[in-house]
Design a binder for these strands. Structure first.
Lengths: 220, 220
DNA sequence: GTCGACGAGATTGTTGACAAGAAAGTCGAC
DNA sequence: GTCGACTTTCTTGTCAACAATCTCGTCGAC
């Protein structure tokens, strides 16, 4: 590797993105120590850049920053994952309700398409495709609601959940179970029925909480 | 002022707290530019400390950090304040519901006392006292819910609202209007009735949204 | 054999100087 | 008199060295 050492702001953004990516993929284990100099060498940036990137990540609760002791990948317990999902539910219910009223025709159209594609993906057993559509669905509902504040909060919350979402999607039978729930959300929003949309989102995320607890019945 | 120049972590915490305080009180106007060296001199810390403190504040959306152009106190429009309040409502509803089930006897007792003190404060026209009790009430409900994730999110949201909360509390007749709503929240939680508690919180924050929009009918 | 003190190495925290960029003020041309 | 280019000044961004602290391994005493 004879990569040029990136300088400055560019480097800082790069490190942040790289670490986030590594967390998503699972290259960085929860609890793992993150040594500034090592990261700087790995990514070819200076320690300052790494330092600022770590502070960013800590602000998003992705890493834990202990003074004089460095950074560790934050471990989110099942109990905390449940709390995060409860908050997601609270915020997404709000968004679903508003989206049912405010969504543009184009957005409603995309929702319908996502629903059809989800059906196909489940029928074909395409887990990855389904997972991507799932993300897009939630994202689109939030966008359509116009609730920017909620959008930012949800982004942060979702960032902390990647590990669990991944594990959840892989459970056999899970897509078949969540498909009707997702379709209900789509129906509610497309039909312009706030109550139905909200109820569908609530039911869906209740089911996620249930699955989380079933995955690890022992609250740490 | 011959104050010793604080060093390091201590300094960083101090600056953060000082700036937050200044924002609360209104010493720092929205949109005002924050020059790193000036703050460093004012508070007797190094520029590095100020820099890190500003990054913290930016993570909480209290200041806006424009590359190469420095930090400004973030302006939150009425429209955004409404969105923030909607998110608060979503999260506090969740907390109220859980608090109604989970609150300890001691916490229920304190809620009852806060209710009584609020009555007295309104009768006496003690706006500041009432405002403090208001804060404590919301805080206590969140604490009693055990929802730590929601607590952190609400803390962040409330930090952005200080200016509006302040202006709202000063509107004549506002305490008399919100008192019954607060008492309803207390009743719901103390009685252990999740539905009632949630509904009371929802009604209260709907009323806050209404007041916000009345304060400035023009969405920016 | 275990516990505790000591010391070497590793890691983070802090600082000040320097570089790069933006804003403001000045001068000249039209 | 006004507009635009240039220069000056101010401000932020970057970096590398230094200092403070922590961790871990080693050694010795009981």
């Amino acid at each position: 590797m004879t990569a040029v050492r990136l300088t400055g702001a560019e480097g800082r953004r790069k490190v942040g993105a790289q670490i986030r990516q590594a967390l998503r993929v699972g290259d960085l284990a929860p609890g793992q120590r993150l040594v500034e100099q090592d990261l700087a060498d790995d990514y070819g940036v200076t320690r300052s850049a790494v330092r600022e990137a770590l502070m960013d990540l800590a602000a998003d609760d992705l890493v834990e920053l202990v003074p004089r002791r460095g950074a560790r990948v934050r471990v989110v317990s099942v109990a905390e994952a449940v709390q995060i999902t409860e908050c997601r539910a609270a915020l997404e219910r709000l968004c679903a309700r508003k989206a049912a009223v405010l969504a543009s025709p184009a957005q409603r159209e995309e929702l319908v398409q996502i629903g059809a594609q989800m059906r196909d993906a489940v029928a074909a057993g395409a887990v990855d495709t389904y997972s991507g559509l799932n993300r897009r669905l939630h994202e689109l509902v939030v966008q359509a609601s116009g609730q920017e504040v909620a959008r930012r909060q949800l982004e942060r919350l979702n960032g902390q959940m990647v590990r669990y979402q991944f594990r959840l999607a892989l459970r056999p039978g899970r897509p078949a179970q969540s498909l009707p729930q997702h379709l209900a959300i789509i129906d509610g929003v497309v039909a312009g029925d706030p109550d139905a949309a909200e109820a569908a989102v609530a039911a869906h995320l209740d089911s996620v909480v249930e699955q989380l607890q079933a995955a690890d019945p022992r609250p740490s």
